[in-house]
Every structure is written in C-alpha cells, then in structure tokens.
C-alpha cells in the first residue's frame, strides 16, 4: 500500500476547499473501513477509459448493419446490449427507441440525472443541469435548436422522461452515404448526443 496516498498529493498549491473536504472525507471513510481506496481509483479509471459513449456507438453501429440485432435491440434492449458486453449499474433495464423520419426521440431525467451508464458512461454536465432538465419536456424543438439541430416540421418529437429505473438509448437514423462503411467506421459517426437525442449521427466525410 506504499504509494496510494501520494498519488493525489502532487499539487498542494492548487488545492481548493472542495479538494480538501473530499480528501478529508475519503481518509475518514478509509480509516473506518467503509471503502477500499484502490476501488476508487478503479471506478475513476473505469468511467474515464472503459465505460463511455463508445460502448453505445458500437451498439448503434451493430443495429445499423445487422437486421437481427436491430430487431433484438428494439424488442429486448437489455439482452441485446449485454450480448456486446455492456450491462449493469444504471443500465439494468434498457429500452432502445428508434429515430425515424416520422419520429425523433429525446431523453431527459427531469427529476435527477438518470442516464444509461453502461452504454453512455457518466452524463455530461448539461444533462444533469437545470436548463436542459426544465425545458426538454416543454420546448424540445427549442432545446434541439440550441444543439444546432433543426428537424423537419413533419417529424414528430417524443420526449422520454426517465422517471423510474428504465434507461433509454436513442437509436439514431443511419446517415445517408454510409452504405459502404464497416461497423467500426459507422460507430465513429455515432455521437454521444445522437444517442440522447440532442444530436444526429454525423455524415460520412
């Protein structure tokens, strides 16, 4: 256990009040035996390098190229997503909602910050903040405009407020001109925002 405490000690000069308070609580919880500090490092490492929106992008790309997976994803998203290795905390009960020319889907949690962690990772700050949470259910077209997205008037908007333990993944429309791309190239077109519904998949360059 030699170096753990020193891993976070390198910039004393820049430590603010919150840094000190969080560090103090961590040492109290550790000394009381409630937490294993290396587990904190593992959690941070997991959510900054392994569990993030590239997982969801792989799900979307697979659904675009594999009709059987597409059908499975819309019928039982939890199982279909787990088959690619993504499951668990804050994604125990998944639903995939498909964007079409007739309907665009937008996901929000007006009551807190519910978000499908296994496929999208930690939510962006705006998703957890009052401007998005307050307006997504009332003025989704205005919200989309702030993200630079304008939909045809003929496209209906459906907003999903994640009020229980179901977690939503938007399946964006496959962009035109992507017919020849392989799964990996397709996944690169799938942005985090396109899987929340605040963006569209990128056009192939």
């Amino acid at each position: 256990m030699s170096g753990h405490d020193h891993d976070h000690d390198h910039d004393h000069s820049e430590l603010g009040e919150m840094d000190l308070r969080v560090r103090a609580l961590e040492s109290v919880l550790s000394e009381k035996g409630y937490i294993d500090p290396p587990a904190l490092d593992a959690l941070i490492e997991t959510y900054t390098t392994r569990i993030g929106p590239r997982n969801g992008a792989r799900v979307v790309a697979r659904a675009w190229i594999d009709p059987n997976f597409h059908t499975w994803l819309l019928r039982d998203a939890t199982a279909a997503i787990a088959s690619l290795g993504y499951s668990g905390r804050q994604g125990e009960h998944m639903l995939a909602v498909e964007n079409t020319p007739a309907q665009h889907n937008l996901v929000v949690c007006t009551l807190c910050s519910c978000y499908p962690w296994p496929v999208l990772g930690l939510p962006p700050t705006w998703y957890k903040s009052a401007p998005y949470r307050s307006r997504a259910v009332k003025d989704p077209r205005g919200v989309l405009a702030e993200f630079g997205v304008t939909l045809p008037a003929s496209t209906a908007i459906r907003v999903w407020d994640s009020t229980a333990e179901l977690r939503y993944l938007v399946l964006p429309q496959r962009p035109a001109g992507s017919e020849s791309l392989d799964e990996e190239a397709l996944a690169a077109l799938v942005t985090r925002d396109s899987m929340i519904g605040t963006g569209l998949a990128l056009e192939p360059s």
């Binding site: 959510y47 900054t48 993030g52 929106p53 929000v108 007006t110 009551l111 990772g121 930690l122 962006p124 700050t125 705006w126 903040s129 009052a130 401007p131 998005y132 949470r133 307050s134 307006r135 997504a136 259910v137 009332k138 919200v143 702030e146 993200f147 407020d161 942005t191 985090r192 925002d193």
Partner: peptide, 18 residues
Amino acid sequence: LGGKSGFGPIVPEPEGEY
C-alpha cells in the same frame, strides 16, 4: 424541474470531458 423556466442556456460539453 420539468417545465420550469428561467435557468438560462444549455452549456454544451465535448464528449469525453467528464
């Protein structure tokens, strides 16, 4: 917060900025 107003603009954030 659903439907409330007065919270200002949405501040975007790049993917991977946690």
